[in-house]
Write a protein that binds this DNA or RNA. Structure first.
Length: 264
DNA sequence: ATGGCGCCGTTTCGGCGA
């Protein structure tokens, strides 16, 4: 009997501020796992009690003001790990990476750097994180055939994932040719597949909408949040949904939840 | 679409993110 497994990713840009929206969304969509990024809360202040009261367990790693990732599920996420195990120095001082197992599926939750500008040290750090990501995921995929690598990759994959023509978008961080190459190399070398593109080739499906642009261009976003599926899971994808209605709520995150449904 | 919003904190503006 096939089981439906639903895993969502959502960069919430402050979990404490967004907690009511997160709880409402969880109640409505009942995922098996929700991967959060930019929780922006140190562990001592993580709203674990409020989540538990609503029936959601959490594994998390955070820091004051910036970064922070968490995995929520109906049962305690199993065997949580934090940072890149194959290269711990790549994530020192940056709560951007964690993994845990839910219902037999290994989940690697990523908040990769945005990069700021091509001449910024943050861009070099972004490149270094992508370089560390590929061997990490390759090792994980060997250990865990059922693997989902999901989160905020901060790179649009191709011309369908940006709101202007590709030549213009390539001038911007998150779609420079170098960054497109990092994402392509990650997929080619790790063997993981972008869940959405296994089943849908439409342009204009977005996961992030700039705060500054939204009022004048509410339909112009970027797709920078993904679920990457291991070879064993890729054939099992049934649906990928982008919950753009959340972007129109009062005091929203600039990212929307993205959920993959697998028939295990 | 090339302006400029929204988060945080030893907070009330500056640093940061996208």
């Amino acid at each position: 009997m096939p089981t439906l497994f639903k895993a969502a990713t959502w960069n919430v840009n402050s979990l404490r501020l967004r907690l009511p929206q997160v709880l409402q969304w969880l109640t409505e969509y009942q995922p098996d796992a929700l991967l959060l990024q930019e929780t922006k809360v140190e562990d001592a202040l993580f709203p674990h009690a409020e989540l538990l009261q609503a029936g959601w367990h959490a594994a998390f790693t955070g820091q004051k003001s910036y970064n922070g990732v968490a995995i929520l599920a109906r049962t305690p996420p199993a065997n949580p790990t934090y940072g890149f195990l194959s290269n711990p120095s790549a994530t020192v001082g940056q709560a951007r990476v964690m993994a845990a197992t839910v219902a037999g599926v290994r989940l690697l939750n990523l908040y990769l750097p945005q990069g700021e500008a091509t001449d910024s040290p943050k861009f070099a750090y972004k490149e270094a994180m992508y370089a560390a990501l590929t061997p990490e995921v390759t090792a994980l995929a060997t250990e865990y055939p059922q693997l989902i690598v999901a989160g905020d990759f901060n790179i649009a994959a191709d011309a369908r994932d940006v709101p202007v023509d590709a030549k213009r978008a390539e001038k911007q961080v998150m779609f420079t040719p170098a960054e497109q190459g990092w994402l392509q190399n990650f997929q080619a070398q790790s063997g993981l597949r972008d869940a959405l593109r296994l089943i849908n080739q439409d342009a204009g499906i977005y996961s992030w909408y700039d705060y500054r642009m939204y009022a004048r261009a509410p339909h112009h976003g970027w797709r920078i949040d993904y679920h990457m599926l291991s070879p064993a899971l890729a054939p099992k994808v049934k649906q990928v949904t982008h919950h753009t209605a959340v972007r129109a709520l009062v005091q929203p995150s600039d990212h929307v939840p993205v959920m993959v449904e697998l028939e295990l």
